[in-house]
C-alpha cells in the first residue's frame, strides 16, 4: 500500500491552472522530492495534500484512505506532518512548549509524559541546550529545526517538507541532510521534499517528481531526472548535466 497518493489533482485560481492532472505516489518509507521552477505548483500541491487548499478535481489518499475533503487537523492526526517554507513557530511558546503542542495530539498523555516525549525529540534534533528558551531568541535555522521537531512530535507516517534548506547556510544544510537521513532511518518515515537545493535533493531523494506550470513533466530516479532533456530545459539548465558529468 502507498503511504500517500494524489490522483489527477486539478487546482485553478481564477484563470490560472496551478495544478493540472498531477499524480504523486509515495511508498511507505520512501524519500520523494518534488522540484520545479518557482510558480510550478509545488507548494500548491503540498497545500492540497494537507487540506489547506481543496482540489477542484482529483483524490488524495493517505495509507489507502481517501482524505480529499478532510480537515487539516484530522489529516495530521491521521499521519501527515508538514513544515513550511518560511518556518512557522509559535512565537509566545518556548521550544519545549512548541514541541509539546505537537506531541499532545496523540492520546491523553499526562503533562510529564508529554514533556518527556518532547524532550526526547528535542534531544534527537540537537536542541536540548535551548529547550526552555523563548523561540524568538533562536537563530532562523534553529527555529526551523524546532518546527521540524514539532512536526515529528505528531508522529507522522508521511512528512512533507517545504524548502527546509531555504535561508540556511551551507553548514546548516549539511547538518539538515544528515539529520533527515537519520530521522528517516529512525522513524521509518516517508518524506516528500520540496527543495531548490539540488545537492540536497540528489543526495536524499529516491524518486523525483518535476512540475512545471502546474503539470508533471517528469518522474524518475535522480539519475533519470538529471538526464531528462525536458527537466534540463525547464528547470535544471543544460549546464547542470555538464556540471554533474
Amino acid at each position: 500500500m502507498n503511504a500517500l497518493e494524489a490522483r489527477g489533482i486539478h487546482k485553478r485560481y481564477g484563470g490560472l491552472a496551478a495544478l493540472a492532472d498531477v499524480d504523486l505516489t509515495v511508498k511507505n518509507g520512501q524519500f520523494v522530492a518534488v522540484i520545479g521552477p518557482n510558480g510550478a505548483g509545488k507548494s500548491t500541491l503540498l497545500n492540497v495534500l494537507t487540506g489547506l487548499a481543496m482540489p477542484d478535481e482529483g483524490q488524495v489518499l493517505l495509507a489507502g484512505q481517501a482524505i480529499t475533503r478532510m480537515a487539516t487537523n484530522k489529516r495530521i492526526r491521521a499521519g501527515l506532518g508538514r513544515t513550511f517554507q518560511h518556518g512557522r513557530v509559535f512565537a509566545r511558546l518556548s521550544v519545549l512548549e512548541n514541541v509539546m503542542t505537537g506531541a499532545a495530539i496523540r492520546g491523553r498523555l499526562s503533562e510529564s509524559d508529554l514533556r518527556d516525549f518532547s524532550m526526547e525529540i528535542i534531544e534527537q534534533m540537537g536542541l536540548a541546550d535551548v529547550a526552555h528558551e523563548a523561540i524568538m531568541s533562536l537563530s532562523y535555522g534553529r527555529r526551523r529545526m524546532v518546527e521540524l521537531s514539532r512536526a515529528l512530535a505528531c508522529r507522522p507516517h508521511v512528512l512533507l517538507l517545504d524548502e527546509p534548506a531555504a535561508g540556511l547556510n551551507s553548514g546548516e544544510v549539511d547538518q539538515l541532510i544528515d539529520r533527515l537521513a537519520e530521522l528517516r532511518a529512525m522513524h521509518g518515515l516517508a518524506v516528500v521534499l520540496i527543495e531548490h537545493n539540488m545537492g540536497m535533493v540528489m543526495r536524499l531523494a529516491e524518486r523525483i517528481f518535476v512540475l512545471n506550470f502546474g503539470c508533471k513533466i517528469a518522474e524518475g530516479t535522480p539519475a533519470e531526472i538529471q538526464a531528462d532533456p525536458a527537466v534540463l530545459s525547464a528547470y535544471l539548465g543544460e549546464g547542470y548535466a555538464h556540471a554533474v558529468v
Binding site: V89, T101, A151
Partner: peptide, 15 residues
C-alpha cells in the same frame, strides 16, 4: 496561544 500565534501552523500541528 498557538492558535493566536499561527492558526495555519496550529492546524498543521493537529489542533
Amino acid at each position: 496561544i498557538a492558535v493566536r500565534d499561527d492558526e495555519i501552523a496550529s492546524e498543521m500541528t493537529g489542533i
